[in-house]
Simulated scan of single mutants.
Amino acid sequence: MSPPLVVVLNGPNLNLLGMREPDKYGTATLDDVEALCAEIAEGLGLAIDFRQTNGEGELITWVQECRGRAAGIVINPAGYTTTSIGLMDALLAVDLPVIEVHITNIHRREEFRQHSFVSKAATGVIAGLGVQGYALALEAMAGLIGAEDPDDEA
């Protein structure tokens, strides 16, 4: 039996992680985040599909493709958090568990960053814990979808 698939989606400008405002976002790159997610997923008995795009339409298409393919979605919508009703609608339409991740605590930032359309579709939200939030999201997702830890099998 193949492991449950969790799709990890990243929105605009996250390709600049590690270079863009390291005082806010840290020095880890998106490749570092992908490696962290791969390691955590393997330990949890999950398969992951890790992607990043700067395009809203592409992100929405990827969400729609999760229907019938994935067991859950971890998403850092980045700049689309506060602007994309289309992304929210797509997440609601796929009828999957969704965990929204933000590297910074959006509630301690500028007022316009504090409202998330994506949260309306999210099962849970992790914000302000740096890139470790992705690892926590995968752990939470494993619990939500009932993934079996491969180390528990005899």
Rank of each mutant, 00 (worst) to 15 (best):
S119C: 05
G55S: 15
L46E: 07
V63W: 09
D89E: 15
L36E: 03
K24S: 07
P4G: 06
D32N: 15
G55R: 12
A121L: 14
A35N: 07
D31W: 00
R108G: 14
G143C: 09
L138E: 04
A71P: 00
E42H: 14
A135E: 05
T123E: 06
A90E: 13
G124I: 00
V101I: 15
N105A: 06
V63S: 06
I75P: 00
E21G: 01
Q52A: 10
G130C: 06
N13A: 14
M141T: 03
I73S: 02
D152N: 07
V131F: 07
L36H: 02
A41W: 01
V98K: 05
V118N: 10
L14I: 11
D151Q: 07
I145V: 14
H102V: 10
Q52W: 06
E56F: 00
R20K: 10
E110S: 08
N15Q: 08
S119V: 10
I48G: 05
L144V: 12
F112E: 09
L91V: 12
G146M: 08
V8A: 03
E100S: 11
L87N: 07
L17R: 13
T29E: 06
A90P: 09
V6F: 08
I99V: 15
D49E: 13
Q114W: 10
C37Y: 09
T29C: 07
V6R: 05
V118R: 05
G55I: 00
D49A: 11
F112H: 04
A147P: 02
A41Q: 07
I85M: 04
G72R: 05
V98G: 08
P22Q: 13
G11I: 01
T29D: 06
G45M: 10
P77A: 15
Q132Y: 04
I73A: 03
L30D: 12
I85C: 00
G128H: 08
M141V: 04
V125Q: 12
L87M: 05
A137N: 02
C66S: 13
D49Q: 13
P3K: 11
A78H: 11
V101H: 08
T27I: 08
G124Y: 08
A154I: 11
E153L: 15
D23C: 03
K24D: 00
R69H: 09
E65S: 13
E21R: 13
G43N: 02
L17K: 13
F50N: 06
C66P: 04
I85F: 04
N13W: 08
A137F: 05
G79N: 15
L16Y: 06
D149H: 14
S2R: 13
M141I: 08
C66F: 01
R67E: 13
L136Q: 03
R20G: 07
T61M: 04
M1H: 10
A47Y: 01
I145Y: 08
K24H: 03
L96T: 05
V94D: 09
E148F: 00
